[in-house]
Design a protein around this nucleic acid. Structure first.
Lengths: 299, 299
DNA sequence: AAGACCTCATAGGCTGTCTCTATGACCCCG
DNA sequence: CGGGGTCATAGAGACAGCCTATGAGGTCTT
């Protein structure tokens, strides 16, 4: 089994990289200097790499150390997003700011927003509920949550809303697929005729796709229908066929080349708007307003 | 300080999600069933969430559990990439397949390729050296490595090469920046006139930018010059100004909306090719060939 | 040139956590 | 109404990590 590293050790490594000294890094992470020394030694032993150049005037990263530190930052970023998200889930509705978000937004965006919000308002407790768009609206109307995030074109009349971003559905294929080498954008008619890997009927992404292809006799009978994003992505990676899903779920796969995005002609409209939603009449309190600002990119 | 979770516990959580049983998950991760039970209990306590619905016929995820598991998968993916990368750095040249890669590729792509390669050829040991493009070529010529990965337009005459992908330099700004709301693509002249956040002269990204803007009197005097990608990204996130860096470094920031990519007019050519390179004469062995295939997306 | 100050490493002792095996309680199914 | 599956509890043991105290080495300043 892969012997996984210790997150505390990675955090310490990053601290050393930032401060240039084992002692300062130890202070920053709240442990003693000898412990930090030992911890780094075991990390180095476990990875089998020399990460630090220890001199009497501090510790600098070796070449390998710099590369590993870069990877470590990414691991920690994801871990912190998990912790923030979990905290938001935990403190639910009984705290200062109760938020409900649809699944895509909750999974991919909310944790990062919360990390940023925490820097702006360190004391704020945020509770997060994960629901579908209709449930989010219901929770808002019932006063169970202060703020909601939904995707879709649909605008409820009795609620305020603000656009915080856009989601794009993309058609992705494994690199071996013929579409991976296409130069010309895919037309709506072509996409409508092709059997695809899709989310189940009734899901948000499926509805967007159906609306976009309705004029061309909707999507063809799917190759596979799956109830969640993760297995859909796996199927696409395995080369089962073209999949349609949110760019948020596959951005990194596209960037790294594990999946190829098939460009679409302009007659295929697979965008949907991400909105913050709240109750009319009830003004946004400070925390909610800030969160919307963060989500919009602190305008 | 944020109490970080234990990676082993996250791995166990994912195993429970996959197998549907604490006992099976325990077996899969190589610990006893009671340990698994206790471990999950402490994870739940630490996060303050009920993750599992324990029944006498197995354990299923709760709603919160499903969301946390999704986040956990992302954490683990990054952690495994770190371990794979570290192993490759460690086993260097004294093993079956020695690889040299330039920094951008090594940081962002190689670990994922190695994870995939390991699934295809479990026994293969890969050694990784991180160098700049010129050093990679030198190492190939000297026979120190079997395979290299470089970025750039430049093609050495005495080496074989295969295109494995493309890198794109992007102009990114924090969401509050005026350019974030632009509709029209940015022209080369406009970009050349604007003070930017840049890598230092001589770096690969800087050279590409200079070549692209040479016709318009090069880039303007930079706002800041930084020697690595990570601080450049941080500066951009902080809103210091428009930054120019590889899309690989900021793909997720763009997807999540923390940074906004400014679209560029067609007269700004900021692409560079990623190539696998090897020695003429010396045929690629099985492992090297597979790795190239993986990098190209198993064509 | 020498003391002050910084760096990191080592030693010894302790606490705490995680582990295992063994067992029990519960439920489903035949 | 047993058998086979689930998970929880209990008690003992091992190991890893932490801390304080100290030492050794280098740098900077006076």
């Amino acid at each position: 089994m892969t012997r996984l590293p210790d997150l505390d050790a990675l955090q310490l490594l990053v601290a050393v990289a930032d401060t240039g000294s084992l002692g300062k890094a130890a202070a920053r992470t709240g442990i003693s200097q000898p412990s930090a020394s030992a911890r780094m030694a075991t990390l180095e032993r476990r990875l089998g790499l020399k990460l630090l150049e220890r001199t009497t005037s501090g510790s600098r990263l070796t070449g390998d150390g710099a590369v590993v530190t870069d990877w470590a930052r990414r691991v920690l970023e994801q871990a912190e997003a998990l912790v923030e998200g979990a905290e938001a889930l935990r403190t639910h509705a009984d705290e200062r700011l109760a938020v409900a978000a649809s699944l895509t937004i909750a999974e991919h965006l909310v944790p990062k927003w919360l990390i940023e919000l925490r820097q702006l308002l360190p004391g704020t407790r945020v509770g997060l509920t994960v629901e579908n768009s209709h449930q989010v609206v219901a929770a808002l109307r019932a006063g169970e949550v202060d703020l909601g995030f939904v995707e879709g074109t649909w605008v409820p009349r009795d609620l305020h809303s603000a656009v915080v971003g856009r989601d794009r559905l993309v058609v992705v294929v494994a690199p071996g697929h013929p579409w991976a080498r296409r130069k010309e954008p895919l037309t709506a008619a072509e996409l409508a005729a092709e059997p695809l890997l899709l989310r189940e009927p009734g899901s948000g992404t499926r509805e967007v796709l159906e609306a976009a292809l309705a004029a061309h006799d909707g999507p063809a009978v799917p190759l596979i229908e799956l109830g969640a994003t993760a297995p859909l992505r796996s199927a696409a990676l395995a080369g089962s066929g073209p999949a349609v899903l949110s760019v948020l779920a596959v951005a990194e796969d596209i960037a790294s080349g594990r999946l190829v995005e098939v460009s679409l002609a302009e007659d295929v409209a697979l965008r949907r708007t991400l909105r913050a939603v709240w109750r009319r009449g009830r003004e946004l309190n400070d925390a909610a307003g800030r969160l919307v600002q963060v989500a919009r990119g602190r305008a």
